[in-house]
Amino acid sequence: LPLEERVTHFRDMLLERGVSAFSTWEKELHKIVFDPRYLLLNSEERKQIFEQFVKTR
């Protein structure tokens, strides 16, 4: 999958899993780590997309 598509899937997962915009990566990790979409991005990309996600929520 192209990166753009993987990012979209990852963001959808964050929304569906009820990730809080007022929380930290560490506190929200347990909600998403077992979702197959979690593995679409490498660890650096995951954290970066998470940070963007919480800023725009």
Results as ranks from 00 to 15, higher is better:
Glu44His: 08
Leu3Tyr: 14
Lys27Arg: 10
Lys27Asn: 08
Ala21Lys: 10
Leu3Gln: 15
Ala21Trp: 05
Leu40Gln: 00
Leu1Trp: 03
Pro2Trp: 13
Asp35Pro: 03
Asp12Met: 14
Arg37Leu: 00
Glu28Gln: 04
Arg17Ile: 01
Asp12Gln: 11
Leu41Gln: 07
Ser20Trp: 08
Arg6Lys: 07
Ile32Ala: 01
Tyr38Thr: 03
Leu14Trp: 12
Pro2Leu: 11
Glu26Trp: 01
Tyr38Lys: 10
Ile32Ser: 00
Leu14Met: 12
Lys55Arg: 10
Arg6Gly: 01
Ile49Gly: 04
Lys55Gly: 10
Glu5Leu: 05
Leu40Pro: 03
Thr24Pro: 05
Phe53Ile: 04
Lys27His: 04
Trp25Glu: 03
Leu41Ala: 03
Leu15Met: 06
Glu44Thr: 12
Met13Ser: 02
Glu45Lys: 09
Val54Ser: 11
Ser23Val: 09
Phe53Cys: 01
Glu16Cys: 04
Arg46Tyr: 11
Lys31Gln: 02
Asp12Thr: 08
Glu28Arg: 05
Phe53Thr: 00
His30Glu: 10
Glu4Met: 04
Arg46Pro: 02
His30Leu: 06
Thr56Phe: 09
Glu5Trp: 03
Ser20Pro: 06
Leu14Asp: 07
Gln52Thr: 09
Phe10Ala: 03
His9Tyr: 10
Met13Gly: 01
Leu15Glu: 15
Glu51Asp: 12
Asn42Gln: 13
Leu40Ala: 06
Leu40Asp: 00
Gly18Met: 00
Pro2Cys: 15
Val54Tyr: 06
Pro36Tyr: 03
Glu44Pro: 05
Gln52Ile: 05
Val7Met: 15
Glu26Thr: 06
Arg46Gln: 06
Ile32Met: 07
Glu51Ile: 04
Lys55Asp: 06
His30Tyr: 09
Phe53Ala: 00
Ser43Pro: 13
Ile49Lys: 03
Phe50Glu: 03
Gly18Phe: 05
Phe50Tyr: 14
His30Pro: 14
Trp25Gly: 01
Arg46Phe: 06
Leu1Phe: 15
Trp25Val: 03
Glu45Ala: 01
Thr56Asp: 15
Lys31Cys: 07
Arg6Asp: 02
Gly18Tyr: 02
Leu1Ile: 15
Leu14Ile: 08
Ala21Asp: 02
Glu5Gln: 09
Arg57Gly: 15
Arg17Asn: 11
Val33Met: 10
Glu16Gly: 01
Lys31Arg: 04
Arg37Ile: 08
Ile49Glu: 09
Ile32Pro: 08
Arg17Ala: 07
Lys47Ile: 14
Thr24Ser: 10
Arg37Pro: 02
Glu16Gln: 14
Phe22Met: 07
Arg6Trp: 02
Leu14Val: 00
Tyr38Met: 02
Phe53Asn: 12
Val33Asn: 09
Ala21Pro: 12
Ser43Ala: 13
Glu45Ile: 10
Gly18Cys: 03
Val19Met: 00
Arg17Trp: 02
Lys31Ser: 02
Lys55Pro: 00
Thr56His: 12
Ile32Asp: 01
Glu5Arg: 13
Ser43Trp: 08
Phe34Leu: 13
Phe53Ser: 03
Glu45Phe: 04
Phe53Asp: 00
Phe50Asp: 04
Leu29Gly: 04
Ser20Met: 05
Asn42Thr: 09
Ile32Leu: 06
Glu44Ser: 11
Leu29Pro: 03
Leu14Arg: 02
Leu3Pro: 11
Thr24Ile: 03
Glu28Val: 03
Trp25Ala: 05
Thr8Pro: 13
Asn42Leu: 06
Tyr38Asp: 01
Met13Pro: 10
Ile32Lys: 01
Arg6Gln: 02
Gly18Ser: 09
Glu51Ser: 10
Lys47Tyr: 04
Gln48Met: 13
Glu5Met: 10
Glu4Cys: 07
Glu16Phe: 05
Leu3Cys: 01
Arg6Cys: 02
His9Gln: 14
Glu5Gly: 11
Lys27Tyr: 07
Glu28Ser: 04
Ile32Val: 14
Phe22Arg: 11
Ile49Gln: 15
Gln48Leu: 12
Leu41Val: 10
Ser20Asp: 11
Phe34Ser: 14
Ser23Thr: 12
Phe22Trp: 14
Gln52Trp: 04
Val7Gly: 08
Glu51Arg: 05
Leu3Ile: 15
Tyr38Asn: 06
Gln48Gly: 10
Glu16Met: 07
Lys47Ser: 04
Ser20Lys: 05
Glu51Leu: 06
Val7Cys: 05
Val54Arg: 09
Phe50Gly: 02
Asp35Asn: 04
Phe10Tyr: 05
Leu29Lys: 14
Phe53Leu: 02
Glu44Ala: 13
Thr8Asn: 10
Val33Ile: 14
Leu41Lys: 00
Asp35Trp: 01
Lys47Ala: 08
Gln48Tyr: 08
Glu16Trp: 04
Glu4Ile: 09
Lys47Met: 11
His30Asn: 06
Met13Arg: 03
Phe10Gln: 01
Lys31Pro: 03
Arg11Cys: 06
Val33Tyr: 12
Glu28Trp: 00
Gln52Ala: 08
Ser43Val: 09
Arg46Thr: 01
Glu28Met: 00
Asn42Cys: 07
His9Lys: 14
Glu45Thr: 06
Thr56Leu: 09
Val19Thr: 03
Asn42Gly: 10
Leu29Ala: 08
Gln52Lys: 10
Glu4Gln: 06
Glu44Val: 11
Val7Ile: 14
Arg17Cys: 11
Leu41His: 06
Thr8Arg: 04
Ile32Asn: 05
Val19Gly: 03
Asp35Glu: 04
Pro2Phe: 13
Lys31His: 04
Asn42Tyr: 03
Thr8Phe: 10
Glu16Asp: 14
Pro36Asn: 10
Leu3Glu: 14
Ala21Thr: 08
Arg37Phe: 05
Lys55Met: 13
Arg37Met: 01
Tyr38Cys: 00
